[in-house]
Design a protein around this nucleic acid. Structure first.
Ligand code: SF4
Ligand code: SF4
Lengths: 134, 134
DNA sequence: TGAAAAGAGTAGTAAATTAGTATAAATAAT
DNA sequence: ATTATTTATACTAATTTACTACTCTTTTCA
């Protein structure tokens, strides 16, 4: 939902793979990104499940990008890690507003509009654009 | 920083005052908004400190708006409760990125641009516009 | 063929933040 | 003076975030 440290780590990890341009093992990625090995492994699993990176087991294993840098947006990475972005938890499917009234409220409409805007902007930035100026 | 339940409650409280158009005590506000009395009192104090509502002590005391509805934006209320809005904690003044490198990073630049956009939109919506369709 | 080097999966814990409460003090109206 | 109200500080509980531990599986290559 929100952008947490975990998303930030995920972005760093993807950028690391973009820049090194070769298969890297989790330990190397961890060192390059200042994310602990265990946490990096956990995040990498999400990125694999999300189709952003490919993994290879065994000796000489590691991780590679599954797509071209310009095909990976900030939104792709963040939403793979956090789920759909939204400005307020009110917009989450399972959230039930404690105020008794039914129907859509004015705040919700505003939050929804803004969330869409944020998603569009996050979609706009991709790793093809970003790779050269970290 | 983010929009939490507390901000949401604050918005409901302000809208309640906008719609009732008269002095209300905390208990009444609490009932109208489905926010517990104690928590509503706490939020009301922040709104008073932020110049959005005025308080009156003693018998027949309570709270009134300190400004016209159209002069109160969603941003005013949210930032009074949460502090300056930002998309990622990276943008907070005191945050220190754990990655060793210095300088501004590409993600930070994107986050900053998007945060500004969100703030502009939150500023755009005010209680003059919203009061009639809750 | 089996040891070593990787990642996968599940569960757990610790830290931080959010949400909410309790209590005592101050103030204003009557 | 009494009562109805807000103010202030401190506290606790619940939830979420951040991170770790342990065990299992897969792959490579001597
Ligand atoms: S934005 Fe409206 S519907 Fe959503 S939680 Fe707040 S009051 Fe409820
Ligand atoms: S956005 Fe960049 S500077 Fe900010 S926390 Fe992430 S890596 Fe660090």
């Amino acid at each position: 939902m929100h952008i947490t440290l975990e998303s930030d780590y995920a972005l760093r990890i993807v950028l690391c793979l973009v820049r090194e341009k070769k298969r890297l093992d989790a330990k190397t990625i961890s060192e390059h990104t200042c994310v602990t090995l265990r946490f990096a492994l956990k995040i990498l699993r999400k990125l694999v499940a999300g189709g952003i990176v490919k993994s290879f087991k065994g000796t000489q294993g590691g991780y590679e990008l599954a797509k071209k840098p310009e095909e990976i947006s900030l939104k792709d990475v963040i939403e793979t890690v956090e789920g759909t972005y939204c400005l307020s938890r009110c917009l989450q499917d399972d959230y039930e507003c404690s105020r008794g009234k039914s129907g859509i409220c004015c705040f919700q409409k505003a939050f929804d509009e803004i969330s869409t805007l944020v998603q569009e902007r996050l979609q706009h930035y991709n790793f093809g654009m970003l790779k050269d100026d970290f």
